[in-house]
């Protein structure tokens, strides 16, 4: 394990920034998110970002390809792919894990999403463990470790006046080696973290939910939902998108954009039929997708990483942890 004096952090980031764009968590107009690092940036390292770093790999709006239309014919034009190596500094273990969930979604089952894949291959993750999880954090309930993200390239812990760094991949080791001048060997004991105070029972949840599609509890749970997209847009594992055209004259761009199962339009079919006509069906979809469909399709994978963003930002406190608790409480039969 190596140590990096906090006083040397700007130098460390500047050195990294020479070869790859470094993204760091910073407050922009009251909202924390990962943006390109620049000298003097005030990093927010005491708590997780409001906007998950997911968008560095899967942006809310992303151009896919261009096209030209001439009356009855047309042609497709490739957009310049400007994907160069980048570093995400300070990503939390829950958000690292969310990328593993997205990997399953975008890269397995016989189809690879090239746009996601490119970014995933270019992005190096320097994760910061959480010594003191927030009151809304419950990653441990999903079996995750707030102090360690096994798939991060470098794992980092706050050791008071220094950061403790450990390379976990070859790429991570290269970074450590290249910055040897700023790092020292660390011999002491790494800091001990506090556990999450919010806990839910997740063992067997998928099996529990399998027969509950028609359960009356969905009506009860969904009543206060206002069907906005806050929870889905701030979720690090939600991945639904819509593919759309932006046509201007004879030219256009095919792009994709986050979509949300909370919106009636999401399932509206040509002809006007909507298989999810009310908030009950939509709220049920959100939770069953996370707790049942993803674990079923991706053999035991989880659809929620317990980051708590939806708990913090829901305007009506429709709390995912309380929903899970409620799903265990009710009688299983309809």
């Amino acid at each position: 394990m190596k140590s990096l004096s906090k006083a040397n952090l700007p130098q460390f980031l500047e050195a990294l920034n020479q070869s790859s764009q470094v993204y760091v968590p910073v407050v922009v107009d009251g909202t924390s998110r990962f943006i390109p690092w620049e000298q003097g940036a005030e990093l927010v390292l005491d708590k997780n970002s409001n906007i998950p770093p997911k968008y560095l790999f899967f942006p809310q709006t992303e151009d896919l390809y261009g096209y030209k239309i001439y009356k009855q014919s047309g042609e497709r034009t490739e957009l310049p792919s400007a994907m160069e190596p980048f570093v995400v500094f300070g990503i939390r273990p829950c958000d690292v894990y969310s990328l593993e969930v997205l990997d399953d979604i975008f890269l397995t089952k016989g189809y690879e999403d090239v746009h996601y894949k490119q970014k995933r291959e270019q992005g190096l993750l320097i994760s910061l463990g959480c010594l003191e999880p927030e009151a809304t954090c419950f990653c441990e309930s999903w079996g995750l470790n707030p102090l360690n993200a096994p798939t991060a390239d470098i794992m980092m812990l706050d050791g008071g006046d220094q950061f403790l760094l450990k390379a976990q991949t070859e790429a991570g080791q290269k970074v450590i080696d290249s910055q040897a001048g700023l790092l020292e060997e660390f011999q002491g004991e790494p800091p001990v973290g506090k556990p999450c105070t919010l806990t839910v029972e997740t063992k067997g949840l998928m099996e529990r939910l399998q027969p509950m599609f028609e359960h009356a509890v969905w009506d009860e749970i969904s009543r206060k939902c206002i069907n906005c997209g806050t929870c889905t847009y701030l979720c690090p594992t939600c991945y639904c998108f819509d593919v759309l055209n932006k046509t201007r004259g004879e030219e256009g761009i095919k792009y994709r954009c986050y979509d949300s199962c909370m919106y009636p339009e999401y399932t509206l079919m040509a002809g006007g039929h909507n298989p999810r006509p009310t908030k009950k069906e939509r709220v049920r979809q959100r939770f069953l997708h996370k707790f049942q469909y993803i674990p079923e399709r991706y053999e035991g994978q989880i659809g929620c990483v317990g980051c708590g963003r939806c708990i913090v930002k829901c305007p009506v406190n429709l709390d995912i942890s309380r929903v899970i608790t409620r799903l265990w409480e009710v009688e299983a039969d309809v």
Binding site: D29, I226, C228, G229, T230, Y233, L234, Y263
Partner: peptide, 16 residues
């Protein structure tokens, strides 16, 4: 411009 640049179009303002 800077205020609405961070809008994520979740439509919470409309829905509430």
């Amino acid at each position: 411009a800077s205020q609405y640049d961070r809008c994520i179009r979740c439509y919470a303002c409309r829905n509430v």
